[in-house]
Design a protein around this nucleic acid. Structure first.
Lengths: 192, 192
DNA sequence: ATAAAGTATAGACTACAGTCTACTTTTGAG
DNA sequence: CTCAAAAGTAGACTGTAGTCTATACTTTAT
């Protein structure tokens, strides 16, 4: 087990390098194992499929949330926090995530037999959302006749819907701006 | 061109039969052409890919809309029409569409190089939505500071979001009921 | 120390989506 | 009616994701 993490991360970094250089589809598993000097056996030991490797893209969202956490703490309205978080996330996605890879992620999460990282409720993404919503409920700003989890699930559903749409339209409109126009209206139903 | 439609529909019906019997993934193109007594050449003449064939599932939605059209006409509020249409559609999906196939459809539409049937704005689905929204705007029930198309796009986005979520959760909650709770609140922003 | 069990690596092999090339049938312009 | 272009059919072939079997390395238990 000693070398395990070394091998796994060699695979991961080679894969992401290739994905960004050539696109997901045009990168073969054989290329990944050649570039990382590993083998099919190792690759499929660590990942159920090529898609599962792609799933780690979800955790990029968490890094962003981690990064903006301090700023979020300084804001007082839960509603504003949510809008701000969405803006930062979508801005980051627009600027630095390949739409090909994002689309592949959303596509593969629907059919994968492996982990569904998008639904991993232990992720920072969900943790922070729960916190913000729960506080908003305590302060009376957000309705309490719905559970925190229900509201978080709905918020996540809306973000996924926006991202799904952006991907299926090949990113031919500005994601962050579009969401800025739409999300606040949609979220109105959670405030009192 | 005489036999063309015959061959195409032999392929289509064999394919759907097999998809429902064995699932999408477990049905091979070779099986489809064997069952339909056609050939690889024909298959790929009519469809860019196995996924494109799956795309015709979208048109099932249109049939439903066609079916409920008379009832919709009898209703007066645009808002009620939209909610009713959604209920009927989602009810039909819940009852008679395999979630495996729906998930595959939503998955493949994100990555297909072929037609994106979900975005085919000539479909009955979009036609009827445009009609309802446009009438609602004329009667002053729906806000007119947004274009009919923008509102229709948003409505479609929400439905896709709801369906994406239902698929990714493996259909482990009742789609129609869930939407009945959520959609009216979300749609509030389109009414005056 | 050594055996046994568990974990990791290797690469040959398989299954299947999709391509390619050659052939056949249909269409329609003159 | 003829014949050239277009549309359709056939199946052998290719590329690649994923499987399988064999071997090597690591850990734990006695």
């Amino acid at each position: 087990m000693k070398k395990s993490n070394a091998t796994k991360s060699k695979i991961v970094s080679a894969a992401w390098k290739l994905f960004y250089e050539q696109g997901y589809e045009d990168t073969t598993v054989d290329e990944i194992i050649a570039a990382s000097k590993t083998s099919k056996g190792s690759f499929y030991h660590y990942f159920k499929s090529k898609d599962e490797l792609l799933g780690s893209l979800s955790y990029l969202f968490d890094e962003k949330y981690e990064e903006i956490l301090p700023t979020v703490k300084t804001m007082d309205k839960a509603f504003d926090k949510l809008i701000y978080m969405n803006g930062e996330l979508f801005g980051m996605i627009e600027d630095s995530v390949s739409i090909d890879l994002l689309g592949r992620l959303y596509s593969s999460q629907l059919v994968t037999k492996g982990e569904k990282q998008l639904l991993d409720y232990t992720r920072m993404y969900y943790k922070l959302l729960r916190e913000v919503v729960s506080e908003g409920q305590k302060s009376g700003e957000i309705r309490s006749d719905l559970s925190t989890n229900d509201i978080v699930k709905t918020y996540a559903l809306l973000e996924r819907g926006l991202l799904y749409d952006w991907c299926i339209c090949n990113g031919d409109y500005p994601l962050k701006d579009y969401s800025k126009k739409l999300l606040p209206s949609l979220l109105n139903y959670i405030v009192i």
